[in-house]
């Protein structure tokens, strides 16, 4: 009875088990790399006017006076207890920083991806079905523009036009204008939390703030998705099974969406996974321009001041996120294409 789901569950567990060495590796590497960063955090955080004694006090307080190997075991011990440490630069625990900032970044990235998929996939399909037409050219122009304009530039242009000149966009000062209160925290995604509270005023406020940064990021992520959709659709449309389907007299619609698109989706999903990862990275600049309190700017600031705990926490959170993402993508493969199974491995 449980047989259909059982192998899949086992496969998922196997996958999760396979990711454990990856995470261990990430923990070791992130620890060593942060220690290799130039600069002495104790000196930095003691402040410019501090004397030798107070620097030493800070060093002891940070645990940096101990040998490296001992620091590592303390770090791992804390990790196992779920303690990511204390960020010195933000003054908060790393766990609470991540819990505050990761949803902000994810909300922005996911909104941007949904937006860009909503444009890129239809555009790619249209371009593939009518190669050489104006749609194809439009697709090409959009893709070239999107990939060649850096996000901070697009962001500033959008602010200049829609906020500064036209005045239709809200002030680019973060996730919510100061006149609103944060919705009660459930997921950390303002749109979801506000909707859960039924507070549509705040929902509208959060959505308005999201529009420009999401468009900025969407423009950037449009290119690979549209290109990949177009290429995959072209390949699929020229394959034998499509010719057979057409010869069998199936409707154009059925051929296009039932057979060609479904087959073309595999590379698109793969690309989507990659795009998601680099979009989270590219976020940094968008976050800076729109004052978005996300994870990218947090990590960069932590890196600049050698805030070890924050950098390690960030790297670890990202690693876990990608392990989860890869798992989801692998599972999606099996849903889209039943020929791909875990059992073959």
């Amino acid at each position: 009875m449980a047989s259909p789901s059982y192998p899949r569950l086992r496969a998922v567990l196997l996958r999760v088990a396979q990711s454990i060495p990856v995470v261990i590796g990430v923990v070791i590497i992130s620890f060593l790399l942060t220690r290799a960063l130039p600069g002495d955090p104790a000196v930095y955080f003691a402040g410019a006017a501090a004397d030798e004694a107070s620097i030493q006090e800070v060093r002891v307080a940070l645990g940096l006076d101990k040998p490296l190997i001992q620091q590592f075991f303390i770090y791992v011990g804390d990790l196992l207890r779920g303690d990511l440490g204390q960020s010195i630069s933000s003054g908060q625990s790393v766990a609470s920083d991540l819990a505050n900032r990761l949803p902000a970044s994810l909300e922005l990235t996911l909104t941007a991806l949904i937006l860009s998929c909503g444009i890129a996939i239809p555009l790619g399909i249209l371009a593939a079905t009518r190669p050489g037409s104006w749609v194809d050219h439009l697709c090409r122009v959009l893709v070239t523009a999107g990939v060649s304009l850096p996000t901070f530039f697009t962001g500033i242009v959008l602010i200049y036009v829609f906020y500064y000149l036209l005045g239709i966009a809200p002030s680019p000062i973060g996730r919510l204008d100061f006149i609103y209160l944060d919705p009660d925290r459930v997921t950390g995604f303002y749109l979801i939390d506000a909707a859960l509270m039924g507070d549509w005023e705040t929902w509208g406020g959060a959505a308005k703030q999201l529009v420009l940064p999401a468009i900025t990021l969407a423009l950037f992520t449009l290119a690979p998705i549209a290109r990949m959709t177009r290429a995959a659709m072209l390949t699929a449309l020229s394959s034998d099974f499509i010719r057979t389907a057409r010869a069998a007299g199936l409707s154009n619609r059925k051929v296009l969406y039932g057979y060609a698109f479904r087959n073309a989706m595999l590379p698109v999903i793969t690309t989507l996974g990659m795009v998601f990862s680099f979009a989270l990275g590219a976020n940094v600049l968008v976050e800076k321009v729109f004052a978005w309190p996300g994870i990218g700017s947090y990590a960069v600031e932590a890196l600049v001041v050698s805030d070890y705990a924050a950098v390690q926490g960030f790297v670890l959170a990202m690693a876990l996120l990608f392990v989860a993402l890869n798992l989801v993508i692998d599972l999606l493969y099996t849903v889209i294409d039943p020929r791909i199974g875990f059992t073959s491995k």
Binding site: I156, I159, P172, I173, G174, F290, A291
Partner: peptide, 8 residues
């Protein structure tokens, strides 16, 4: 309010 970008 903290707004990192000077242009913004």
């Amino acid at each position: 309010r903290e707004v990192p970008s000077p242009a913004t």
